[in-house]
């Protein structure tokens, strides 16, 4: 379940920045929890106020993020040269950006606006084509045709299987 824990450790400065963001989150949630009504009249005790539990979680989160920040500083986050972080390679960033952009366009924009089979066909075609385009001009047309067939097949089969066989409503 841990999945990612076996990779190389992050530079301490990344942990420090993470701690700062988490501390802001913790303090922000604490403030919101504090402003929630307490319902003392109804419950007779303020301890059942809706803000108690999120306030508790946020306080723990804030304390833990301070510990994370202090640990990062102890490990040299503030020392010069500590910022040499392992950034994504340009290729990784391009691949991630493409996948994320296409995913948001599909799930956030197309789905619900055009018929589901069409949205899915377009998405699968675009995704496959985008990631197979850099493979070079040799066989590109064939790959694009295969991507189009895959897209249409996915759109059709997913719609058929979910809507007709398993009676699940699709967007």
């Amino acid at each position: 379940m841990s999945g990612s824990s076996d990779r190389e450790p992050l530079p301490p400065r990344v942990d420090l920045a993470t701690a700062a963001v988490l501390l802001a989150l913790g303090l922000g949630v604490m403030a919101l929890a504090w402003r929630m009504p307490t319902f003392v009249e109804q419950s007779g005790t303020g301890l059942t106020a809706p803000g108690i539990v999120p306030g508790f979680h946020a306080t723990v989160l804030a304390v833990l993020s301070v510990l994370l920040g202090l640990r990062a500083i102890r490990r040299g986050a503030l020392k010069p040269g500590a910022s040499q972080s392992r950034a994504w390679s340009r290729e990784d960033a391009r691949q991630l950006g493409t996948a994320a952009l296409l995913g948001v366009l599909y799930a956030g924009v197309l789905v619900g606006r055009v018929p589901f089979w069409m949205a899915t066909s377009l998405f699968v075609f675009a995704f496959t084509a985008a990631f197979e385009w850099p493979a070079g001009p040799v066989g590109r047309v064939r790959r694009l045709v295969e991507a189009a067939v895959l897209g249409l097949a996915t759109g059709g089969i997913v719609t058929l299987v979910f809507e007709r066989i398993f009676l699940v409503r699709l967007p």
């Binding site: 996948a99 296409l102 995913g103 599909y106 799930a107 956030g108 789905v111 619900g112 899915t120 998405f123 699968v124 995704f127 496959t128 990631f131 197979e132 991507a147 895959l150 996915t154 997913v158 979910f162 699940v168 409503r169 699709l170 967007p171």
Partner: peptide, 26 residues
């Protein structure tokens, strides 16, 4: 993976939507 992952993403979208039929869940 370029052919498998978009199908998986499609299934994720269906999975998120199907339980309450809200686009918000997507």
């Amino acid at each position: 993976r370029s052919r498998l992952m978009p199908i998986v993403f499609t299934l994720c979208t269906v999975g998120a939507f199907a339980i309450t039929s809200r686009l918000f869940d997507i």
